[in-house]
Design a protein around this nucleic acid. Structure first.
Lengths: 262, 262
DNA sequence: CAGTGGTCTAGACCACTGC
DNA sequence: CAGTGGTCTAGACCACTGT
């Protein structure tokens, strides 16, 4: 018996529960009980191999489970660590309020202010494209080509959100919206200046596991889902003037909405 | 060379990209391109072992990746299949509208109507408990004990949602709310009859990987996250009258909200 | 350098499925 | 029964980390 820094028990090879699951159970419980603190290193694979008297694959299989649950992260050459919860951004339902736009603040800045982090925007791309069927439908059905604005948002240097906006060409072409920097208050402020007074936004929310591309772009740890939000902006004439497709690292966000009871 | 039903290529063992990742990439691309349709069986482990000339562990590692991404599911003794997308429930932001309550419909029934599925509720538990700090805070801070209502919702026989409601005892004790079946229109209808006219709801939304308990309760496939929604109901006197903690299978839901632009 | 996790092999036995 | 995935062993070599 090695004297592990923790008090992990033994496994029962005759149990119905697979050995690697038993080991994962014990580690998970130890983490939940605070036996291993956030950011702390778990016993190495070699230590667990010796402690439990199993092969390395079995131990790795256990770690693999815990990674899939988002409980731990492995660092090559260093060890396996209990995942720390990153600071979250709370998206309030007033984040598109006109008073913010009139103060020259874009929605992302409003949120960053609230979170107290340092906001950045990068990998900006602005171009014209053919609208997909879905985007065309959301924009009212008759839109063929759109202005596309892609950008990635970072908070304190960490990528947290990847967003793509689609606007009908007859609205956006040749305006400040078609420039990389749309100016104070963001594109919603520009839309209102162009006479499209905003009435409301519809937001659709899904959650799923990220694609490999999203894992790269958002530098996601394994076991972290993404929140996929599709927002459509409507002006007071009931016209859809923008669709924004956003993918967010789920561990960095809490969305917040207020619903009327009437 | 075996003649696989698909046209999967070869792998480059000298590449920087690990062999099991290359295999996963090829399978993922084949799936994305529709080379394997939804619900279709992928080549067996043995077939891929022979096709790529690698060991079984390497192939299993590839499958493991795709499972983590929610792309495929393995069925013991049958094979590995492309995951089918279940019908989703769209939760509209008017699901708590008074007009529905007045028609005797609970929110879940309203949604099920819209989705066209067959709704069920099971594992109902109603009891009094000590409030956690978090629940107490959400209910205004001074609440010690609460009435707790736990239930699981099923759609067409599949568990999709697990919900727990917390209500202050001075409101709920001795009323129909404390009974397993609260009657037509659900507990919100009873609250209004008791004089707590509802004003609005605040909803907090998170997404994360499920705990092992949630995997069991919701019969979740691997690679499926959960949406965690915490709703607080307020009456017209600004009092929090209920907190509802809901965990949903993310592949079965699209949440939908309308935000004012003002 | 020693210690860590990342990848891979070549087997083995088991449990589940469908014929 | 043959075919499938589930689990496990006992090695091997590699790349990355910190001293």
């Amino acid at each position: 018996m090695t004297a592990l820094p923790s008090s992990l028990g033994a496994v029962d090879p005759t149990s119905d529960r697979a050995v690697f699951r038993q080991i994962a159970d014990q580690l998970r419980e130890a983490i939940d009980r605070g036996r291993f603190a956030e950011g702390e290193k778990l016993p190495s694979e070699a230590e667990l191999v010796e402690h439990y008297g199993v092969s390395r694959m079995t131990v790795r299989n256990s770690f693999s489970m815990l990674q899939g649950e988002g409980l731990v992260r492995a660092e090559h050459g260093k060890g396996v660590f209990v995942r720390t919860r990153p600071p979250v951004r709370r998206l309030a339902s007033d984040r598109f309020a006109r008073r913010h736009r009139e103060q020259g603040k874009s929605a992302f800045l409003v949120e960053a202010d609230a979170a107290g982090g340092y906001p950045q925007v990068d990998s900006l791309e602005v171009k014209e494209e053919k609208a997909t069927r879905d985007i065309s439908t959301r924009l009212g059905g008759s839109v063929r080509r759109v202005l596309v604005r892609r950008r990635r948002y970072l908070l304190d240097g960490r990528p947290v959100e990847f967003a793509t906006s689609y606007l009908p060409l007859d609205i956006a072409r040749g305006t400040r919206i078609a420039e990389p920097n749309p100016g104070p208050g963001g594109i919603y402020a520009r839309l209102e200046e162009l006479g499209h007074r905003l009435d409301h936004f519809d937001e659709e929310i899904r959650a799923r596991m990220p694609t490999p591309t999203e894992v790269k772009t958002l530098q996601l740890a394994s076991g972290v889902p993404v929140i996929h939000l599709i927002r459509t902006a409507y002006d007071t004439e009931k016209r859809a003037v923008e669709v924004c497709d956003t993918v967010m690292a789920a561990d960095a966000y809490v969305l917040s909405y207020r619903l009327p009871a009437t």
